[in-house]
Design a protein around this nucleic acid. Sequence first.
DNA 1: ATGTCACAGTCCCTGTGA
Length: 255
Amino acid sequence: MKVATWNVNSLTARWPRVDEWLRTRDVDIVLVQETKQTDAKFPFDALRDLGYDAAHYGQGQWNGVAIFSRVGLEDVTRGFGDDDPEARVIGARCGGLQVYSCYVPNGRALDDPHYQYKLSWLEKLRERLAARPSDQRIVVGGDFNVAPTDLDVYDPEAFVGATHVSEPERGAIRALLATGLVDAARQHNPDDPCYSWWDYRNGSFRRGWGLRIDLLLVDDVTAGRVIDVHVDREARKGEKPSDHAPVVVELRDEI
DNA sequence: ATGTCACAGTCCCTGTGA
């Protein structure tokens, strides 16, 4: 079974690339961020034609998260059950897994109120994950907007004082892992940076100026099923790409 | 730091967010 996370930066603008990707990658569950569309515009019918059930938590102009699954889709949850007006997390049960698609707030700047919103949002996610049953098999994917360590940053010097690398943000990611989760890409590729995002500006992709901010966090039993984790850099090339590439984990069948 | 992209409204340019 393959599970992917992909920030598509507008499903409306990206649909031709997403459609082509789904037809050629043979992925079972796709955790999608930044759909930037309402539920009314979401391509439920086109996804069904491709074999996927889908659940969307749409907002409109900004944010928006979704789950595509061809291994079942049940018990959909949207948000954290609080008063957060932004559509940033959706969960479901797919193929024996609890999955979440997360779009963590950007933070904008260390002294911006949005940064505190980011930290409090990550704490709400931690609380949700800490409350899960111990026997639950889970994949938490998304754009976390945090590079967990300096290995995940092309030039750590250039990011001193910036968001995405600050100690409170990195501490929040470690706190998610401390609920009993494994960073699948880093476990499987201890030395490969595995960047997943490159700025549209400056020719960043061509120059290799990337960050690893799109993560797949899995419970320890699921971590034992991992055959491969890779970043699909081909999806970052060509016509009208997202600024993020998909990250894909392949799991061996359960015994 | 900034060589881009996507969105909505001010609607074919501009401000905002990333």
